[in-house]
Design a protein around this nucleic acid. Structure first.
Lengths: 213, 213
DNA sequence: TAGATTGTTAATCGATTAACAATC
DNA sequence: TAGATTGTTAATCGATTAACAATC
């Protein structure tokens, strides 16, 4: 199995290509070129070809890429075809927004349950996902083969939740709380930090003001 | 005014340093070293020093950085001290989650109003931000000096919203819809795409499965 | 065949890390 | 002074872009 190390920037562009492909597929388009993909997602054409070539040779010179085939291959290689079981902790506004996100089905991620401490919420459900009592989390993780934990609790509670997750064999954490989590290094953490996006926009807006008279 | 070009990766780390500093300030800590910051946010110490040095010399050899002073300077340089006025379009789950995000105050971003087409929602408010009729958006943009538009509508409506925003003098767009927006190049767009984070996590989880027997 | 487009090798560009003198 | 820590220059590393032969 070809497990060459994929550069991080490449890895982050692949989902964009994948989405672009899925839109073309919906339109019934059979073949696309790297130029088509590049223009759609705003990436240099050579970059697109190079990114795709990390995994193998999917295209045909003079023709392009078969949409259906490329999607299948990308999906397999990225792990979008095997189901990933997840739990989400923190059924507040952010948590319910995340759980309603349409992307989970596309990537075969199944949120088995949400957890919260609020008695009002426990027992209800959001987007067909039940909200369970936080106290039941360790047991639930033990009984179900959950690989991914999604943290949408307030910052102060995030580390504590991360500790429970890592103590119960979770493999990866998708963290929406704006804190640096301390976890064992074999656990993969992805921080989804709104501050980064907002701050960079502020920077550019402010720079314009400075540069203009 | 020193407007040297800041590398993109540096720009994205600065908000993390800023947050780290704000936590120390809360604890009453006066001085920190690049080692402290680096360990907290998970970045190489030399990287931290180099990043900070792009803006000027803020530290003292043998001593470190004054927390209060460094925050002030970073805040000024990043544009966190001048108020940025924003509107948010799409008062669904995602929109209400975003509007309740605590970071806006920290970065002096003021969401003046939310917009939606749902008559049930129009006239109500979320986190003290009023929800107005979408039809009123162009007029509102004209009458108020809004610089930033936040898009939290479904994918199909996103381009249309972007068109209204750009036609009415918006400077930057924070886009949460998973689509590639076509906008004039002077408009700064930041895509906040959950697919990227989810997909990279899927990739790592899947890789483990493959690598393990 | 001619035109289009891929995949790859080489060249460029940019970011990170290492080394170290300067400073407190 | 000795130890700590900064800011900067040089060396390394990695990613992007350009050039081009191979293929349909």
């Amino acid at each position: 199995m070809k497990t060459a190390e994929i550069p991080r920037p490449t890895l982050e562009r692949l989902p964009l290509y994948y989405r672009s492909l899925s839109l073309w597929r919906e339109q019934g388009i059979i073949t696309v070129s790297s130029v088509d993909i590049g223009r759609d997602v705003g990436v240099n054409v050579v970059q697109v070809r190079k990114d795709l070539a990390y995994f193998g040779e999917f295209g045909r010179p003079g023709v392009g890429y078969n949409v259906e085939y490329l999607m299948d291959e990308l999906g397999k290689l990225m792990g979008f075809t095997t189901e990933t079981k997840a739990v989400l902790i923190g059924a507040g506004r952010l948590g319910t927004a995340v759980v309603s996100y349409g992307g989970f089905k596309r990537y075969s991620v199944k949120i088995a349950a949400m957890f919260d401490t609020d008695k009002e919420k426990i027992g209800t459900e959001v987007s067909d996902v039940p909200i369970l009592d936080m106290a039941y989390l360790p047991q639930f993780l033990g009984e179900n083969e959950i690989e991914l934990g999604i943290i949408t609790v307030p910052s102060l509670a995030a580390q504590e939740v991360a500790d429970i997750l890592t103590a119960n064999d979770i493999k990866a954490i998708w963290n929406f709380a704006p804190v640096s989590l301390q976890v064992p290094e074999e656990i993969k953490v992805r921080n989804e930090d709104l501050a980064v996006g907002l701050a960079t926009l502020c920077y550019f807006l402010n720079k314009e003001k400075k540069d203009a008279p």
